[in-house]
Design a binder for these strands. Structure first.
Lengths: 131, 131
DNA sequence: ATCGCCATGTAATGTTATTACATCAATTGC
DNA sequence: GCAATTGATGTAATAACATTACATGGCGAT
């Protein structure tokens, strides 16, 4: 299967996120895309839904915002749990992945007989430059 | 120092959360407390801010909702990173803590020279009963 | 008593997300 | 060809979540 061809709206939203230096809210994306014919929030949310589904974009729950996936690898296969550091100073977001955490969480959740669908790990704080 | 005496509004909000069987949004809390004189969202948000600060309540970022802390231990000293499983079926939220994850995250974040202020770990899925 | 501090009350507004309904284009099956 | 289906889109309205701004009231300390 793989990631399908993006539609026009999906490409525009993806482009906006990819060229941004940080996370963007849906409404910020909307504003950026007014010139390209975007008029309503739903146009953004619909595109984001698909991009999230394809794994091209991540949602930052603690920010109600979205970032392009920075993972170099293919998006076709799962790349497990994604975690983020989020700097309160400069807004910089860094994505990372760790097998050890993933396994440990898996063990703990299994002990509850809980079936994981989506895992959110977000660390708010200050980056090296903003410490 | 320890947790200060709660004010009237803080007690009401704490009570609402403690007696609920699951997470509540700020507006749900507001509705529950109309009979006790609550009229505006701010009354709830102000109380929540303090309760969060005291560690009596947790915010679930992926739900925009709040739960009473179920941690049996004293709230006076830090009890590190808090993680949650959240069942999409029944809404049940389970709080847990794990030293191994805490240490591993600490190591990874340190490698970035990042200074953690708050860590969010939320696992959405289905509990044993709702699988 | 006056000041400062903090909790409170109220209204208005800002921000994020969804529902509902209509239209349009591409594809499929007859 | 031409319904029927499916998926993307457009638009408006509304719902849900959160904050700003400003006024008031209680209470302890000087």
């Amino acid at each position: 299967m793989g990631t399908p061809q993006l539609t026009k709206n999906q490409s525009l939203v993806m482009g906006a996120l990819a060229h941004s230096d940080g996370p963007m809210s849906a409404y910020t994306i909307l504003d950026k895309l007014r010139d390209h014919g975007f008029r309503a929030p739903l146009q953004v949310y619909r595109a984001l839904d698909k991009l999230l589904e394809y794994g091209l974009v991540h949602r930052l729950e603690s920010l109600n915002a979205f970032v392009a996936c920075t993972c170099p690898q293919d998006h076709d296969h799962e790349h497990g749990v994604t975690a983020f550091t989020i700097c309160e100073g400069c807004g910089q977001v860094t994505e990372f992945h760790d097998e050890a955490i993933e396994q440990r969480l898996s063990t703990l959740v299994r002990a509850q007989s809980f079936k994981t669908e989506k895992t959110t790990i977000e660390i708010r704080g200050h980056c090296k430059s903003c410490a």
